[in-house]
């Protein structure tokens, strides 16, 4: 399961044209990944300084998957997310300030503070919600794809989940139906190697990719740290699904830089410090894209630094908004139980 696909060899001329054409998009991808990284580091800080209730599962290290996939989507395409969902929400267009407000249980949060870190939903950006049940949103995403097909809207649904969800039966139930009925959906498996605190070698038999292939779903395994590759692969699978050619399955190999959640600090019993250091030093998706932008002369170091400080400022302003926002009225506790 370690095979990854490299971008095809191209002529120098073709490559230069691709770089020019993609320049704006990759600069945006760089900005979006930094936004997610700084957001997550800020969340970690809020937790460590006891300013945030509950817990949070950080997406740092996996940014290229959310950003690459969401860049392949239309604004009205649907996503469903996971307990490790901040990156998906931001990549699909959620605003930093309302995200922080939600994480802090505040009234201007995306769910009026009722959902919190694990349940952010934002209808306006097509985000049908993060889900705290592993594999829990597989049905919802498939249902959204079903609606798209029934209503003829041309929308595609993307279902993000981790390798842990491969242990959930409902995922296979809905992948079967999606293939039977050629639903416009992309299942994105973010393989970060660990089901919470257990390596997936202990939990997952056989081939991950073959699980999807058994349903006749178009499946690809890629290096999830290369945002350009994620985008190119997702783009192909998304457009294929949109045309009515059936669902796709994208297995993106990635790594979470933090523990399972913010409180998971002592983790040497399940993964080594050396492994973590290797991924941070050699496989950081932001560094990988940044180096490429420099090598291809899309940007210089000063430009990248400017993006970095702007992203940091956005996050700082966002957390201030969240911290200063009011809590919901107590009377809201009984609101929204029923529509």
């Amino acid at each position: 399961m370690t095979q990854t696909k490299a971008p095809r060899e191209q002529s120098a001329q073709q490559r230069a044209a691709d770089v020019r054409e993609g320049a704006e998009q990759w600069m945006l991808a760089y900005r979006l990944m930094l936004r997610i990284r700084f957001f997550e580091e800020q969340v970690n800080d809020l937790y460590r300084t006891a300013r945030m209730p509950g817990l949070a599962h950080l997406y740092s290290g996996e940014e290229a998957v959310a950003v690459g996939v969401c860049q392949a989507l239309r604004p009205d395409d649907y996503i469903t997310s996971t307990h490790r969902g901040h990156g998906h929400c931001l990549a699909k267009g959620a605003s930093i300030d309302r995200m922080f407000a939600e994480l802090l249980g505040k009234e201007p949060g995306y769910c009026r503070g009722k959902g919190g870190s694990m349940h952010i939903a934002d209808q306006e950006t097509g985000n049908l919600g993060a889900n705290a049940i592993v594999g829990g949103s597989a049905g919802i995403a498939t249902g959204a794809a079903f609606s798209s097909k029934m209503l003829g809207t041309g929308q595609v649904a993307v279902c993000f989940f981790g390798d842990g969800a491969l242990g959930q039966g409902v995922l296979y139930e809905v992948m079967n139906m999606a293939s039977l009925w050629k639903l416009p959906i992309l299942y994105v498996c973010e393989n970060n190697l660990y089901n919470e605190y257990t390596h997936n070698a202990e939990t997952t038999a056989g081939s991950m990719l073959a699980r999807a292939q058994a349903f006749n779903i178009e499946a690809e395994e890629i290096d999830g740290q290369d945002v350009r590759l994620v985008y190119a692969t997702a783009q192909r699978l998304v457009e294929r699904a949109r045309r009515g050619d059936g669902p796709g399955f994208l297995l993106a190999n990635t790594y979470r830089f933090h523990g399972h959640h913010v409180g998971d600090i002592q983790r040497t019993y399940y993964r080594s410090k050396e492994e973590e250091e290797y991924w941070k030093a050699e496989r950081d998706p932001i560094t990988i894209l940044g180096n490429w932008l420099l090598e291809e002369h899309v940007a210089d170091a000063a430009q990248l630094e400017r993006i970095r400080s702007e992203a940091q400022e956005e996050v700082t302003a966002g957390v201030e908004f969240g911290l200063n926002a009011p809590f919901p009225e107590i009377s809201e506790v009984t609101e929204h139980v029923y529509a």
Binding site: Y78, T80, L128, A138, G139, I140, A141, T142, G143, A144, A145, F146, S147, S148, M150, L151, A157, V170, E173, V174, M177
Partner: peptide
């Protein structure tokens, strides 16, 4: 589950 998602999106 499919029913939930379809219900959330217009059906």
């Amino acid at each position: 589950g499919l029913g939930v998602g379809a219900a959330m999106t217009g059906m």
